[in-house]
Amino acid sequence: MPQAQPEPGRERVLRPLHTGRPALRRRVWDACFVGASGLSAFVVMVPLALVVWHLLAKGLPELNLDFFLHLPKPVGETGGGMANAIVGTLILVGIATLIAVPVGVGAGVWLAEFGRGRLAAAVRYTADVMSGIPSIVVGVAVYGLVVVPMGRFSALAGGVALALLMLPTIIRSTEEVVRLVPRSYREAALALGAPRWRTTQDVVIPAASAGIVTSCLLALARASGETAPLLFTALGNRFWSLRVDQPMASMPVFIYDYARAPYDDWNRQAWTGALVLMLLVTLLSALVRLTTRRAPRP
């Protein structure tokens, strides 16, 4: 068939293709959208940059080796460090992780793979409600549940309180990432004669592991900075103590105490403590990410 002539009026609608410059209106809108989203991205960076800059400016001058190696000095003496609080935070977060990660990941996997009906809905609802409970309320609850029966403040109680704060995040985000594992992986395993539990264990969880680790890390990072739930549970300690049934020092409580103290020296150390806490959390995430990087890769 011979090529038809353009319909009348058509050449008016089609602009020449090679003018070298798109229509003005389109370019203006394009610039607006790119500009607006770029600005938003920039605004997101600002608070982080401010926090980091502020902490460095205020905390760096007091940062020295002593800070990591020594105990707090009595009032009136300058110097000293917060070695006990650094170790204390690691122990508290360690206890919380030991409790929250197995339970949270287990519950999340169950919700995604096996959970049906009312029980699953109840678990999901509970997790959602838990994530809305203010952390100080969790602290008070653990005070009643653990501290009072034990008869004293303890690292264990602190760990339990932090675990309760970590749980809902871990449960819900584990469920999300496990659901993202393609159905075809499950079918492949089942068709090979894998029972459900082996399919979950061998195929689904490894495929979701990067996401699960990330969700645990986020929960862990949040928990390391929590102060309120520790005030009624781990309390704090100005001396060395590694016993989990005794009060234990922690960095957030240390920062809290030192920041409101009427001594300039303590206030300066609070800044340094904040800087160290931030570095610690950053270091932890980097470490976990590094160790969970999975082989094999293409």
Binding site: S184, Y185, E187, A188, A191, L192, P206, A207, P296
Partner: peptide
Amino acid sequence: GMVFQRANPFPKS
């Protein structure tokens, strides 16, 4: 045994 429409190897070696 079964082979599916879309190749679905596990993300393993």
